[in-house]
Simulated assay, not measured.
Amino acid sequence: MSERGIKPSNQPALADFKVSVDTVIFSVDTQQNRVLVLLIMRRDDPFSGQWSLPGTLVRQGESLEDAAHRVLVEKIRVNNLYLEQLYTFGGPHRDPRESPKSFGVRYLSVSYFALVRFEEAQFIAEGVSGIAWYPVKQIPSLAFDHGKIIEYGYQRLRNKLEYSPVAFDVLPDVFTLSDLYQLYTTVLGENFSDYSNFRTRLLKLGFLADTGLKASRGAGRPASLYRFDAEAFAPLKDKPLVFL
């Protein structure tokens, strides 16, 4: 038995960590009924020429959230977005730069989850060989463990839509119930609720304010335009399955 305060010599050395921030940026193309994720083609090793999530190593004096915002503003230009920390991926050997020659350096990925409006998003392609939206059901082979990060992020997106107002962060200020329903069915599937039940439940919950305005689209009856009322939603915050 070793003396108190003396580390046994057979214990592994403490790891030396580098921290990256990788951001899963989702968007919803309701016209083509697709959930999309933003991918970039890496220009540098490791995995040069392969698709990956937008990411960066955290700089000296930079917070994780600042690094995540830096990734966003360097790759995409939007007016409305939702951003939150997702999960930390830190298994050994997840990064090929972890080798005996790196003197035990480990690479952690603190992932973030973002949702942006598809219609307004503009790409910024500086520093990458390519940038594109990919449907989550048609993801190509990715660098690192980014496929796993996307799977985790997509499940978070589905969960967030069920109990939080995240959708209203990326909808226009005013919208029709049909616009909202289309977003939900694109992400959750058409079987999550029929339109009539969805409409009845939402209006009963009382956090959608009727603007008194109408939207005319095609030859159909003009649809009412609503606005999200954050104050009215506050009592429902964090209650599960609000919309189902």
Rank of each mutant, 00 (worst) to 15 (best):
L188W: 10
A219D: 07
F168G: 06
F175A: 02
Y181E: 01
G220S: 12
T185K: 12
F192Q: 02
R221M: 08
Y184F: 15
Y195D: 01
P172M: 07
L171R: 06
L177S: 00
K204G: 06
D179Q: 10
L188M: 11
R217S: 10
K204F: 12
A219Q: 04
G212R: 05
L202K: 05
D194Q: 08
F168R: 06
L183I: 06
P172S: 13
K214G: 03
L202G: 02
G218W: 05
F198Q: 04
T211D: 02
T185S: 14
K204E: 14
Q182R: 15
G218L: 05
G206P: 03
Y184G: 09
L202I: 12
S216K: 13
L180G: 06
G189E: 04
L205P: 04
L213K: 14
T176W: 10
P172L: 09
P172Y: 07
D194M: 04
T176Y: 11
G212P: 07
L183E: 05
T186F: 12
N197G: 09
G220K: 10
S193V: 01
T211W: 04
L171Y: 06
P165D: 14
D179H: 12
T211I: 03
L188Y: 10
A167L: 15
N191I: 00
F175K: 00
R201V: 09
N197E: 12
S216C: 05
F207T: 03
A209N: 10
L171G: 06
G189C: 05
T211S: 09
D173W: 00
T200E: 14
Y195T: 00
A215G: 01
N197V: 07
S193T: 05
L213E: 14
G206N: 01
T211K: 03
L208D: 02
L171A: 08
L202P: 00
E190H: 08
E190L: 07
D194E: 10
V170N: 06
R221V: 08
S216W: 02
R199K: 14
G220C: 08
T211Y: 02
Y181H: 11
L203I: 09
L208R: 03
G218T: 04
F192W: 11
D179L: 06
V166G: 13
A167V: 15
F207W: 13
L205F: 07
S216D: 05
V170A: 03
N197R: 14
F198K: 07
T176K: 12
A167H: 11
T200A: 15
A209P: 00
F175E: 01
L177Y: 01
R217Q: 11
L183A: 08
S196E: 13
V166P: 12
T200W: 06
T186I: 13
Y195V: 03
D210R: 06
L208Q: 03
L208S: 02
E190C: 00
F207A: 07
D173A: 11
L188S: 10
A219G: 07
R221S: 08
L171P: 05
P165C: 15
A219T: 01
L205T: 02
A209S: 12
T200Q: 14
T176V: 10
Y195L: 05
E190N: 09
